[in-house]
Simulated assay, not measured.
Amino acid sequence: MRRRMRPVRGIPLRAIAPNAITALALCSGLTAIRFAIDGKWELAVLMVLIAGMLDGIDGKVARMVRGESRFGAELDSLSDAISFGVAPAMILYLWSLQTLGRFGWMIALVHALFCALRLARFNAQIDAEEQPHKSAGFLTGVPAPAAAVLALLPLYLWLFTDEPHLRLPVVVAPWTAFVAVLMISSVATFAPHVRLKQRVRFEAIAVLVVLVAALVAAPWPTLSLIAVLYIVSIPFSMRNYRRIRLLRAAGTPRPGASEPNSAP
């Protein structure tokens, strides 16, 4: 007797909204490449930043509407690879690295490839029980959106100062390679913990308003400052993770940590 085949189910209706946001992020990354081809560097950077903002909210929307799905996770990884790997690599190549010829193209490929490798490592370890960095509240390496912001730092400074030396490949190539290595490294970096509450502190609103105002009024120095502060924070995150690891090895729970049998 023939076994009756089950009909293939489509995507749940509640998953459409977060997947649409992810698709918009992918479109933003591709549009950044188009603006880079036209030499519109400001718009190219803006599209990468928009992709980063959309990438930051699609997961939250999925959790709010309970629209998490394997399809959404795969689409998110594809969007990240394009928006934060391929797009910054193409922008930097067309802006500076192409004068190095094949070597410049190799540096661009390294950034895009290492971004894909990082995302593949994340997907492979997503169900792993032993994740020391995640259990301690840290990320492993620099996440793809942050790496895209960091990689474009010479472009921010060039747009702000109009200093021609910042566009030289001898400056851009080592920096791009350095950021690419940070993506696939095992360095512990701070994980953003942003939780929406019913009552938001006034100080948080004030900081957000100041940040948005700074990005609108002076985007390039503000982005440069954000990138520099993130780089400066990495040694502190490494030190904090090392301290937590030593406390765990000594059997001392870190402050604020939950009990082993308690709910996360």
Rank of each mutant, 00 (worst) to 15 (best):
L109V: 03
G52C: 14
E68P: 01
T140I: 10
M106Q: 02
V86N: 09
A62V: 13
K134Q: 12
V110M: 15
L155M: 13
A147T: 13
G104Y: 05
V61I: 15
F122M: 04
L54P: 12
A87H: 07
G59W: 08
T140Q: 12
L157F: 08
G39H: 10
K134G: 02
L78A: 13
S83H: 06
G56W: 11
G137V: 13
E42P: 04
I57A: 09
A116Y: 06
K40G: 09
L139G: 09
L139N: 12
I82S: 12
I126F: 00
A148M: 07
K60D: 10
P145H: 07
A108T: 09
L46R: 03
L150W: 10
A87S: 15
V86A: 15
G137A: 13
L94F: 07
T99S: 15
A89T: 02
N123F: 11
V61K: 07
Y93G: 00
R102K: 08
V142A: 05
A44W: 05
D127N: 14
V142P: 03
W105R: 01
H111K: 00
D58E: 02
K40F: 09
S79C: 14
A147R: 06
A112N: 07
V61M: 14
G85Y: 04
A81F: 10
W105I: 04
K134M: 05
V65W: 14
A62M: 12
S79P: 10
V65T: 14
L46I: 10
L100Q: 04
A62R: 10
V45A: 15
G59T: 13
V45Y: 00
R66Y: 05
G141I: 13
A51V: 09
R70Q: 11
L119A: 03
G67V: 11
L157M: 14
Y93W: 14
V110L: 15
F138N: 05
A73T: 07
Y156E: 00
F138E: 05
L117H: 03
L117P: 02
A151N: 07
S96N: 10
S77G: 11
H111E: 01
A62I: 15
A51T: 10
W41K: 06
R121C: 10
F84K: 05
H133V: 00
A128K: 13
G56I: 11
G104K: 01
L139Y: 12
L119F: 04
E74G: 01
S135P: 00
A146F: 03
I37S: 04
L49N: 04
A124G: 04
A128F: 02
A89K: 02
G101L: 02
F84E: 06
D55P: 05
G59Q: 03
V65Y: 13
V45R: 02
R102H: 04
A44P: 04
G56P: 08
Q125F: 00
P132Q: 05
